[in-house]
Design a protein around this nucleic acid. Structure first.
Length: 530
RNA sequence: GCCCCUGUAGUGAAACGGAUAUCACGACAGGCUUCGAACCUGUUAUUGGGGGUUCAAAUCCCUCCGGGGGCACCA
């Protein structure tokens, strides 16, 4: 059984022959039980009976089950269940045995998915922005989370190293050195001028080949992006996929076009080739090949999806910034046509920068923005990570630069890390006489509350993974840390009865293991001292 | 105009349709002879307005008001 919650659901299921999902929740207040279910309400609809009567029936069926110490019907039909201490101790024992494996799921082969998770994928035309960072931390943790849930994940950074934006970058460099005149669409940041100055000879030599020049600069910028991602932020990628080499040169652009044509989903209009994306819910059809005969970015992206499909993935998840919202339905159309079993797009909402109460307008084109690297330098990778991973991707957030540093000190990440430090301290220093461990000695309210929170971990992981909700893991971590701090204040390991000390030490070890697990999924370090 | 996200304590956020709305910061009042006080204990909200669906709504539907973003043969 993967979790206590599943065990509870299974016990209930025995008295419910209907094909009904039995949802078991963990109430905030203990007065509503350790576990609770609303299944009597659902059953009431099914059987056309009173929820109260049905809840009573279920209660009778559960009484005597070794899992429960108490079962009650409450409200107009809730069934509240209290887990017996023996069951809790049994689960706690499992944590001490499985340690860092606790909560990680082992799925049967048929349920395991091979998933490609694409994130950041910022064009190599300059430094990473805060929005890139938000998606970066999210993607990194989501990959960890899906792996913990039993799947295999490839973390992919898709590099748009060819096409218009590379040519524009080349032209921007030429303009910076005065070979051509500035245009509105050119990249204008200081970093453009710097690169152009540092490579003046190269710029001059390629003054008639902006694509080549842009390509050279893009390679440099990508190197810098990788440095920030991997060295500074601890974000891990398995693969940097070159659009040029992996999609264009391997013929996937043509293959995608051929596939679309074969399915009869294309047509010509005004000299361009269009894809009927409206048949898949898009609000207008999209161009695949322009009048001038060039493949659009969208066609290349479709080629990328085809490549993903042919490499054997069951599904693909992409994390995009809010500016790509308009792109979602055509991408989903392409995913469907290339026959990818599952395709999800997560849109992270914008990060607005505020300084002194005023919004700072940012534009990568104009070069006016605060980089991701600056943020990480300012507040530390752990704090930056935690800050973003505490909230839902749907949240529009204001990031106050003036408070950034202060906020880092107030960042709850330290609260969580400190709990780990304290646990480590006890494991190192508390003197506990050797002997057998009797977990049943853990019976103070602080002991029990901590145990109960620990055993929630597997269901937290499962739910968070199912909903791609990294922030639920973060929130759980904070709750666990709180209960650990409470335990620490109230109870001692050192200087109590030897048998009690041993039991408490086991609890501390279990807490430490789960805390490390949480921090591990989030990608935050678990320090032993601070 | 159409589409997506969003409006929850002073502030920033959380809450598979469930019960007494959770957390952090700030503010106020307390707490260290002990395994680290970067900690602990209190106090601080009728979830933007109005309708509706439901046994049950912050959550779903309609509408109004307010924020952010997107609607290219750019990426």
């Amino acid at each position: 059984m993967a979790s206590l919650r599943e065990a509870v659901a299974a016990a209930l299921k025995k008295s419910i022959p209907e094909p009904l999902a039995v949802e078991v929740t963990i109430p905030d207040a203990e007065t509503f039980g350790h576990f609770s279910t609303n299944v009597a309400f659902r059953l009431a609809k099914e059987r056309k009976a009173s929820p109260l009567v049905l809840a009573e029936e279920l209660k009778r069926a559960l009484l005597g089950h070794e899992l429960f110490s108490r079962v009650e019907v409450a409200g107009s039909g809730f069934l509240n269940m209290w887990i017996s201490h023996d069951a809790l101790y049994g689960e706690l024992k499992r944590i001490t045995k499985e340690k860092k494996r606790y909560g990680r799921m082992k799925l049967p082969k048929t349920q395991q998915k091979y998933i490609q998770l694409e994130f950041i994928s910022a064009n190599p035309t300059g430094p990473l922005t805060l929005a890139n960072g938000r998606g970066g931390f999210l993607g990194d943790a989501l990959a960890n989370l899906l792996e913990a849930a039993g799947h295999t994940v490839e973390r992919e950074y898709y590099v748009n190293d060819t096409g218009n934006q590379v040519r524009t970058l080349g032209n921007s460099l030429l303009a910076a050195q005065g070979f051509i005149s500035e245009e509105e669409k050119f990249y204008k940041g200081e970093y453009v001028k710097e690169w152009a100055r540092a490579h003046a000879v190269l710029v001059k030599r390629h003054q008639n080949k902006p694509e080549v020049l842009g390509g050279r600069a893009a390679a440099d910028f990508l190197k810098d992006i990788k440095r920030v991602i991997e060295k500074k932020s601890g974000i891990h990628f398995d693969r940097y996929t070159s659009e040029k080499r992996s999609v264009h040169e391997k013929g996937f652009v043509k293959k995608a076009l051929t596939l679309f044509k074969k399915r009869g989903l294309t047509y010509e209009n005004e000299g361009a080739v269009w894809l009927k994306t409206t048949e898949f819910g898009d609000d207008k059809d999209r161009v695949l090949v322009t009048q001038d005969g060039f493949p659009t970015y969208f066609l290349a992206d479709a080629g990328h999806y085809l490549e993903t499909k042919q490499r054997g993935f069951d599904g693909k998840i992409v994390i995009l910034g809010p500016d790509h919202y308009g792109y979602v339905s055509r991408i989903q159309a392409a995913a469907k046509i290339v026959d990818l079993a599952r395709s999800d797009v997560i849109i992270t909402q914008a990060v607005r920068l505020v300084r002194g109460g005023e919004e700072v307008k940012m534009s990568k084109r104009k070069g006016e923005f605060v980089t991701f690297e600056e943020l990480v330098d300012e507040v530390s990778p752990d704090a930056a990570r935690f800050f973003f991973q505490m909230i839902s991707p749907d949240t529009h957030m204001d990031f106050d630069l003036d408070l950034a540093k202060e906020r880092s000190l107030k960042n709850p990440v330290f609260y969580l890390q400190y709990a780990h430090v304290r646990a480590t301290g006890i494991m190192k220093k508390a003197r506990v006489a050797k002997g057998g461990v009797e977990l049943a000695l853990l019976d103070t309210p602080e002991d029990i509350r901590l145990v109960r929170k620990l055993v929630e971990f597997p269901s937290v992981l499962a739910d968070a993974a199912a909903h791609y909700a990294v922030h639920h893991v973060t929130r759980y971590g904070l709750e666990l840390a709180k209960l650990f701090h409470n335990f620490y204040e109230a109870e001692r390991v050192d200087g109590v009865e030897p048998a009690l000390g041993r039991a408490r030490m086991a609890l501390v070890r279990a807490s430490s293991a789960v805390l490390e697990n949480v921090l591990g999924v989030l990608g935050v370090t678990a320090p032993e001292e601070m």
